[in-house]
């Protein structure tokens, strides 16, 4: 006697959650804009420098040449006469690579610590939570400054310095997710057939905790890029590698004389971080479809 309700769109239910998330993401204009901006930036920094062919540290013209006046140095020159366009084209490499690598380090540390704390609970959780708290009270930039100063400022040191200070948010998130998921049925089922803790964490729980962690990782990439820019602005990154932050930092004393040397690299950082956070927001919406129904 029960009435069978014909399903309006049976195909949607057959979709995997990832495909469904991609569908939502694709229909999000802001997120797609972010993706396009980021793609353009990545392509530019990959191929731009070799196509342009001017080395960023070379003196390319008279110092303080304003932009849009000399065709040879289209974005002008800085206080030493270095080509601003060359710097902008190549400066993203260090910034974005350090950002990505540092975010990887941060997410790895954060997920490991959060997973252990959330899965085991008890004294493990208490101990790891205290450690997380400790890293939360150390002001990240100052701590990274100390690390970079005590060790030599190479890109590797910068990557680890950022990674070591940026993981606490991920750890808190991973802890909450693992705590929530460890007692769900499939975890219990896997436990019943004799899966060990490591297998359970990696094979059963982690995949289900991924969506929020991916969102958080994306946002960390954004803040790691800002972080790298801040450190190189202060002159605490590798001085032999051109980066957007370094360009701004080295021209800091002359900003009133050559605004272009700081404005363009800054805009590049801004656009990159904006693109990354638009993507992060889009992913967040895509993984939480209920927010859309309102």
């Amino acid at each position: 006697m029960a009435v069978t309700v014909p399903s309006p769109t049976p195909t949607v239910e057959a979709m995997s959650p990832w495909l469904e998330a991609w569908r939502v993401f694709r229909s999000n204009k802001a997120a797609m804009l972010g993706l396009v901006i980021l793609s353009v930036i990545v392509l530019t920094m990959s191929f731009g420098p070799s196509l342009y062919g001017v080395a960023p540290f070379d003196i390319a013209g008279a110092p303080f040449t304003p932009p849009f006046t000399e065709p040879s140095v289209w974005l002008g020159t800085d206080y030493l006469g270095r080509d601003v366009l060359a710097g902008v084209l190549v400066g993203g490499r260090a910034t974005v690579l350090v950002g990505l690598a540092a975010a990887t380090v941060a997410v790895t540390i954060g997920v490991s610590i959060g997973a252990l704390a959330g899965y085991f609970g008890g004294w493990v959780d208490t101990a790891l939570s205290r450690v997380t708290e400790l890293f939360q009270v150390l002001p990240a930039l100052l701590f990274a400054m100390v690390l970079v100063t005590l060790f030599t400022p190479s890109l590797t040191v910068v990557i680890f310095a950022i990674g070591i200070v940026a993981w606490t948010g991920t750890a808190r998130l991973a802890r909450a997710e693992f705590m929530r998921l460890r007692h769900l049925e499939y975890a219990n089922a896997a436990r019943a057939i004799g899966a060990g803790p490591l297998r359970l964490m990696l094979r059963e729980i982690l995949p289900n905790a991924l969506p929020p962690l991916i969102v958080s990782a994306t946002l960390i990439v954004g803040s790691a890029i800002l972080f790298e820019a801040g450190l190189s602005f202060l002159g605490l990154s590798d001085a032999n590698v051109m980066s957007w932050g370094l360009m701004i930092g080295s021209n800091r004393r002359n900003i009133l004389e050559c605004w272009w040397a700081v404005t363009f690299p800054g805009a590049a950082i801004f656009l990159t971080v904006l693109a990354v956070s638009l993507i992060g927001d889009g992913l967040n919406d895509a993984f939480n479809p209920k927010l859309h129904l309102r």
Binding site: G222, G230, R252, W259, T263, G266, F270, V273, S277
Partner: peptide, 14 residues
């Protein structure tokens, strides 16, 4: 969120 804080400062200084 996306503006580097030191860049915002420099723009204001200019």
């Amino acid at each position: 969120y996306a503006m580097p804080v030191f860049w915002t400062g420099i723009l204001l200084v200019i």
